[in-house]
Write a protein that binds this DNA or RNA. Structure first.
Lengths: 249, 249
DNA sequence: AATTACGATATGTATGTACATAATTGTCAA
DNA sequence: TTGACAATTATGTACATACATATCGTAATT
């Protein structure tokens, strides 16, 4: 290929003695943050346009654009087409919470993973579950209870309801190699999900299963998923104290 | 944010020969997602290189690059320099957790917000806090404890450590109009953050402050923030039972 | 005065090009 | 066999350029 439509690059030959290191978009991000912090630019204030910044930093506008775009993505600044870029007044930011497969999560800590199915049967879902999934009373549901272990110590108690019609293949699945969690992740793509995080006191059964005293605080992670408006599953996952869900960014 | 319909959405397939509308990186993202969903490309599988995809879509490599970069950012695919791009094995989906200012969060529920500073003094931080912030023992720290109310009922107990050197202006702040939370959000931008979610039993003091029995399960939300490697603050927020952090997407 | 049309302007995105960088692979020597 | 090193290659990023698009302000029109 090797076309050279511009071929310009005229003056270069004789003029430039020192080679300028290209300015990275990272450098620019850092500099912008520094200025915000140093109160050179105050919240709500309009900052110079991309063109100006590019001139100031001695780089291309696209480079400034990328820096500003990424800052806007994490809510540090706000941009509008004709209006320009301004420092966010209320940098309401969002964290991204990674939701791994339980097995991977356990193994990532260097522990040995194991799970055991406590029960698996078709039955009518209780009202709260039906309501969350928005399903009629007679919808065929599969109820699976499963205990996940890390180094043979209870790690998570999973209480799951599956809408059979949405994942018919699950009828044949016995979960003897893959946990319901992993099976669904691999076999049932979803487009929407709602997660809830909270804390509760262990009831008698939960305490017994997790090997804890009744009333022990449990970390609750519940999740409901849909594929294009069709409810797939609702799961409630309980963790013993000490568990910490982390996200860094 | 920053969505726009593009209006393009051309059939792509193959027919369009003349007068090509530029292919948007959005189009490419969508197409890639479609292929993953349709199992054209399976988890773990290597997909064609940027050059090939650019040729296939009839666009510049940079455009494909942007599409793939953004998909990699949300964990859909994984990229390595010499190795190429592959579909993520464990489509560990991630939830976006919005982290509003407490006041806004309370007011959004139609409740009346109020807060009260329990203590505010300079003191050495305990070892765990220092460790998390990666600060030496003699770093000057400000410790602030604050109770947030919704309709006069305790909503959150905030226990915060601030690295004074990172936010010197805080020395003069008395927090009589803005809570530490809101003050920092407005005045101390950060570039990195780590959040942790867990459950604990209320100790005697926490129980007293929140008007609960000792041992009651509390939902814990802790957050540490940095601005370019400089630690800013570490905060631990405790919520009474009933609190549920939700995220839908 | 209210409404509409339009031009100016800042951001948004696509392209071709070039070079940088990381990581795998092949090659050769110890 | 193994370790060092170079060649190869896919991704990562920068640049100049061009055009697209959303808006704001203002002028023209109703």
């Amino acid at each position: 290929m090797t076309r050279q439509p511009t071929g310009a690059e005229d003056g270069v030959a004789g003029a430039v003695a020192e080679a300028r290191m290209p300015v990275s978009f990272r450098t620019i991000k850092a500099e912008i943050l520094k200025r915000i912090h140093a109160r050179v630019w105050l919240p709500g204030e309009l900052i110079p346009g991309e063109e100006d910044l590019a001139r100031e930093f001695g780089c291309a506008r696209v480079t400034v654009n990328r820096a500003l775009r990424e800052l806007a993505e994490i809510g540090i600044i706000e941009r509008k087409r004709r209006a320009g870029t301004r420092i966010a007044e209320h940098p309401l930011r969002e964290a991204r919470l990674e939701i791994p497969v339980v097995r991977v999560e356990v193994e990532a800590r260097g522990a040995q993973y194991r799970f055991s199915i406590l029960s698996r049967k078709r039955m009518d879902a209780p009202e709260p579950v039906r309501a969350r999934l928005d399903l009629p009373a007679d919808a065929e549901m599969l109820h699976v209870r499963c205990l996940h272990f890390a180094d043979n110590r209870p790690w998570q108690f999973e209480d799951r309801w599956i809408h059979v019609a949405a994942v018919p293949e699950i009828a044949q699945e016995s979960f003897d190699t893959l946990s319901p969690n992993e099976w669904l992740v691999k076999n049932a793509p979803f487009s929407e999900m709602e997660i809830g995080l909270s804390a509760v006191a262990a009831d008698a059964e939960e305490a017994a299963l997790l090997g804890l005293e009744r009333g022990t605080p449990l970390f609750v992670f519940d999740r409901t998923t849909w594929l294009l408006d069709q409810p797939i599953t609702h799961v409630r996952m309980l963790h013993p104290p000490g568990y910490r869900m982390v996200s860094r960014f």
